[in-house]
Simulated assay, not measured.
Amino acid sequence: MGKLLTIAMPCYNVEAYLERGLDSLADERFSDDLEVLIVNDGSTDSTKEIAQRFVDAHPSIFTLIDKENGGHGSGINAGIAHATGKYFRIVDGDDWVNTDNLVLLLERLRTADSDIVVDVKREVDMASMQGDVVFLPEYVETGTELSFSEVCNREDTESCITIHTLTVKTDLLRSSGIAIREHIFYVDYEYIVKATSRADTVTFFPIEIYQYLVGNANQSVAAENWVKRYRHHETVVRELLQFDEENAFSAAIQAYVTRKIQLVINTHYNVLLIFDKDRKQGLARAKAFRTWLHERYPSYAELTDKRYRKALALHYFGVDAAKLGKIMGR
């Protein structure tokens, strides 16, 4: 192992944003401890050229990995394959970090040895560039190594573990053979479930690191894109169901994995029954998926039937993504 932390930055046509993200990492205080792998995923704009400028200016920090387009999962896989850091995390090419706080996190990582480390993100509105910190729950014990199986099912602890807040031991990722589906969207959730379900220990740090840009209509989580790429999301659902089927977990971790998969199935019903403005099409897709789920994974079908019925009722009442957001207080 070389550096203390590897950051993989998957990039596809992010010329409008990339310099901001790389600037936040181009600090000589990182030279000894940080490796940033800029994974150019077949961009057709000037992403590669921008990345190369930073590699030339800060060769002790930045490395460019230039590859054919394979999607976000491919960028994650390439990052894991090339990482030399003890720890590994992901920063997308259109986001950035709080530089001074990353210095602080690196100081903490020097003495940490947990399988996973969880910190804090800020969600920054694209229009106003104002943001809100998504704090850790008050009951979460910070700065101390904890048993992951003892905290992963406590209230909503797992909700603060996202791709934006998660740092994982590189050896854990490799020894577990973790590989993410390529050529599809929505693999963030797949990565979180696969990486965290292998962890024995976790440490939480109340340090704001990730600056997550939200409000971009082109983001994969925009309602129209959920619908357009519903097959991608369904592929992730099926991948996680198969992952659960093929692996044995302790009772606590199994409960955690089951809940995570239940949530992603619930989301899929929302995409099909509520987000799709073509109500007939969405209904047909939802019924087909539910039939498959009952046949292939009846226990998960039973767990999610209540959400299916709720989404179906909202579907018939004409609730769309915008109205659902208001109902949920967003």
Rank of each mutant, 00 (worst) to 15 (best):
L4T: 08
L4W: 04
I7Q: 00
A8G: 12
Y17R: 06
D23S: 14
S24W: 13
D27N: 15
D27A: 13
I38T: 03
D41H: 03
G42P: 05
S46F: 07
K48H: 09
P59Q: 00
F62I: 06
F62T: 01
T63W: 00
L64C: 07
I65T: 03
H72E: 05
G73S: 02
S74A: 07
A78H: 02
G79A: 06
R89I: 06
V91C: 11
D95H: 10
D95N: 13
L102D: 06
L104W: 12
L106A: 08
E107A: 15
L109Y: 07
S114Q: 08
V118T: 11
V124L: 14
V124Q: 13
D125K: 12
A127I: 14
V134Y: 11
F135I: 13
L136N: 10
P137L: 08
Y139S: 08
V140L: 09
E141M: 09
T142C: 13
T144F: 14
E145Y: 10
E145W: 08
F148W: 10
S149N: 06
R154N: 04
D156P: 04
S159Q: 13
I163M: 05
I163W: 04
T165G: 09
S175Q: 13
S175V: 01
F185W: 11
I192Y: 02
A195M: 01
S197H: 04
E208L: 14
I209H: 08
S220M: 11
S220T: 09
V221E: 10
V221H: 14
A223L: 03
K228D: 01
H232E: 02
L241F: 03
L241Q: 02
N247R: 06
T258E: 09
T258A: 08
T258G: 08
V264Q: 00
I265L: 00
I265N: 01
D276V: 03
K277W: 04
A284Q: 11
F289P: 06
F289N: 00
W292C: 00
E295G: 08
E295M: 03
E302D: 11
A313S: 14
L314N: 08
H315V: 09
H315R: 04
H315W: 07
H315F: 08
V319T: 15
M328K: 15
